[in-house]
Design a binder for these strands. Structure first.
Lengths: 107, 107
DNA sequence: CGATTATATAAGTGAATAATTATATATGAG
DNA sequence: CTCATATATAATTATTCACTTATATAATCG
């Protein structure tokens, strides 16, 4: 019962084209919000709210880095969420120049 | 892109507690509508509309049997839909007596 | 045919959703 | 401390959604 409720919450969180796109962006790794805003054709607050929904469902995690916030896929997913992630075509995004060095984690 | 739209449609179709319950009922096999109405605490038209949504997403199939209509899970599912079905606890339902012999298919 | 039963469709309504604009918070630069 | 930038939250609004009641369709029974 509780598991059905939890399942519903997670499924609701991903059953939206824009949020699926956000997840597709995160398949390649951690991304900062400013880069995500460019991908979707919506405002920054809209992206922020959708990220929150994904976060509250436990599907993504956040990491604060100075003024920026980086989001990434949670490495622990329910099997059915993982199956959706596996089916998503990754989206490669151009980063917002040097301002937000999303890939500093590689160092 | 089209695949993302299709994915969204299917995920929307299952991201609802009542529709998840319907799917859980169908895990054991074909069931007629009258039995499903008893499981959910909603009206018959509500059940009918939810079944239609699942059918339009290609997740369930219908079979007409006289006055009754029997629904069952589509045997061909996208992997991510199948993963959800696998995670669902089956719901066993008492059939509506002899009026609707859901299990005549066993003969 | 007319009545009954099973299911579907139509119309209407309240709640949830996802966007927008405006504003708040928080960090870093000078 | 003040300003600029990145992100979040609040308030509002239009749309979507899932229910309800009423009605239509379709098959069976007498």
């Amino acid at each position: 019962m509780g598991s059905l409720t939890q399942m519903e919450k997670q499924l609701k969180a991903i059953s939206d084209a824009n949020r699926l796109k956000l997840l597709a962006c995160l398949k390649r790794g951690e991304v900062c919000v400013c880069d995500l805003v460019d991908v979707l054709q919506v405002s920054q607050p809209a992206v922020s709210q959708q990220l929150r929904k994904l976060k509250e469902a436990g599907i993504i995690l956040e990491r604060k880095k100075g003024t920026w916030k980086h989001y990434r896929l949670n490495e622990k997913q329910s099997p059915y969420i993982q199956a959706v992630l596996d089916a998503l075509e990754p989206i490669t995004l151009q980063q917002c120049g040097s301002t937000c060095t999303s890939n500093e984690g590689d160092n």
